[in-house]
Amino acid sequence: MEKAALALIAMLLISACSNNNTVSSNAPAPDTATEQSEPHHQMTDQWVGRWIGVEGLFLEISKDEPEGPGHYLLHMRYGLDDDQIGTFEGQATAEGIRFNREGGPQLLSAGDGEATGMKWLLEKEDCLIVATGEGYCRD
């Protein structure tokens, strides 16, 4: 009985040591390292150009060349009031383009017409959404 207990303890110690080596490794898995180092702007660079909203609303995205890759200028009419037009600086993230506008930080992300929450854009497939009720699409 004593030998069996010692053998069991030895097995547990060996097992714990071998698991400890893999658990303590801080090196990311190869897929994770590639994903973390991949620039976010590769996706958002495809958004450069004009996007159309409803009732005269629009979004024009251009690269902010002096700021470098992943930086954009968002010229937009985002509401019907005279003061709801402007140009905002944006930066690529994994989720889309972050920018600040009245009301605080905003996120421009990809979606479809249904995600805009507007019946006039419902059938569109290539859209950018700031929030439900504010979206811009391409044909």
Score class of each variant (00 low, 15 high):
A94H: 14
E134C: 10
S62H: 08
L121V: 06
L122Y: 14
T116C: 01
V48E: 02
D81R: 04
G49E: 03
K119F: 15
E95D: 12
T87K: 04
E2V: 14
E55A: 13
L57R: 09
Y72N: 01
A33E: 07
E114Y: 14
T87Q: 06
G113V: 03
M11H: 13
Y78I: 07
A29G: 11
G53D: 00
I14C: 10
V48R: 05
A10P: 12
M11A: 13
A92R: 07
N100S: 11
W51Q: 05
T22Y: 12
E89A: 15
T32N: 09
A33W: 04
E134F: 12
I14K: 09
A92H: 04
F99T: 02
A4P: 09
K119N: 09
D45M: 08
Q42V: 14
H75C: 08
D82P: 11
G56T: 04
I129E: 05
A33D: 06
N19L: 15
L121C: 02
N26S: 15
T32G: 07
K124Y: 05
G68H: 03
A4R: 07
P30L: 03
D82G: 07
Q91T: 13
V48A: 08
P28R: 04
E89L: 12
I14V: 12
I61R: 03
G133F: 04
N21P: 14
L107C: 06
S62A: 12
V23F: 07
S25V: 09
G96V: 01
F88M: 07
K63P: 10
S18N: 10
S25I: 04
E95M: 09
N100L: 13
E35Y: 12
S25G: 05
L8Y: 12
G96W: 03
V23S: 05
W47Y: 03
G135L: 01
A92E: 00
H41T: 11
D112E: 02
G133S: 03
L108M: 00
W51R: 05
E95S: 09
A29C: 10
I9K: 05
T22W: 12
T22H: 15
H71L: 05
T32A: 06
E134I: 13
M11F: 15
F88I: 10
W47C: 00
L13F: 12
P39W: 03
D112P: 06
T116S: 00
G111L: 06
G104L: 03
E114C: 15
L122Q: 15
D83S: 05
G104E: 01
L128K: 08
D139I: 08
L122T: 13
S15Y: 10
